[in-house]
């Protein structure tokens, strides 16, 4: 197995070395990456989209269809994980005589140090503020929907690790859980439909000056939906893998 793997790796490496030998050097301002559509985005992106962070502009306005399908992909991943039997099976809650004893045992199994508990509880609001700031100022500084989704998701996972399963499950309101998980695809579809009615193109953004506020609103709605939906999906993936099998 090992010799086969080494041989395969060598063949792949040789092929790729031949491949990169034919590539133009990177970092060259006149390379093909920088002279075709990328140059147009850099020159006209701010005027056309009103977004100063061009990564966000490409993500939502120019390449919105990719992002739509990508949001659907992570939603599908969550559905796939939840569809596996162990993710949804909950252990029956202990009752009667042995309940107190078994709860104490569960407490002893993974005790959280009070220091770690306090520090995570102190830091969590700051992490949340950082995530919200990167969402709110995502058009002028590095940041945006996906970044703040990743940060909020990581914060929820840290809280879940420290506070335990039951408390972490309460971070996502139970009644709204299904809607929050599907928030990304649903809102993307709604905005795409609005764009279709306005411009005649699916996921189209109105380009004229008069529709500036509307275009801004569409981008903001998409960013918030990606951030909230993505964070909830990341937290749910953690909860599903954390469930006892």
């Amino acid at each position: 197995m090992r010799t086969f793997a080494l041989a395969l790796v060598l063949v792949v490496a040789a092929t790729m070395v031949i491949g990169i030998a034919g590539l133009p050097p990177h970092g060259d301002p006149d390379g093909p990456v920088h002279t075709h559509v990328g140059a147009r985005y850099l020159e006209q992106g701010v005027a056309e989209t009103g977004l100063r962070n061009l990564v966000t502009a490409v993500l939502l306005v120019y390449r919105g269809f990719d992002t739509f399908l990508e949001v659907v992909v992570i939603f599908t991943a969550l559905v796939a994980v939840l569809a596996l039997p162990s993710a949804t099976r909950q252990p029956p809650p202990p009752r009667g005589e042995g309940a107190a004893a078994s709860r104490r045992e569960a407490d002893d199994a993974v005790p959280v140090s009070p220091v770690v508990f306090l520090v995570v509880r102190l830091l969590a609001p700051f992490i949340a503020v950082f995530a919200l700031a990167s969402l709110y100022r995502g058009h002028v500084t590095p940041g945006g929907g996906f970044q703040s989704a990743a940060i909020i998701g990581a914060m929820m996972i840290a809280l879940g690790l420290v506070f335990g399963r039951e408390h972490a499950a309460r971070l996502v309101p139970h009644g709204a859980k299904a809607w929050l998980q599907a928030l990304g695809p649903l809102v993307f579809a709604a905005v795409a439909f609005v764009g279709w009615r306005l411009t005649g193109a699916f996921l189209g953004f109105p380009a004229d000056e008069a529709a500036y506020a509307l275009r801004e609103a569409m981008v903001v709605v998409l960013e918030v939906a990606i951030a909230v939906g993505g964070a909830v999906i990341l937290a749910q993936l953690f909860m599903a893998l954390d469930a006892p099998s």
């Binding site: 590095p142 970044q147 996972i157 990341l234 953690f238």
Partner: peptide, 19 residues
């Protein structure tokens, strides 16, 4: 690529490791 770096720090080093 600061946008990518933020996401990789939160997702690659945080979420993936925990999973």
């Amino acid at each position: 690529a600061p946008d990518v770096a933020i996401t990789e720090a939160a997702v690659g080093a945080g979420v993936t490791s925990v999973l």
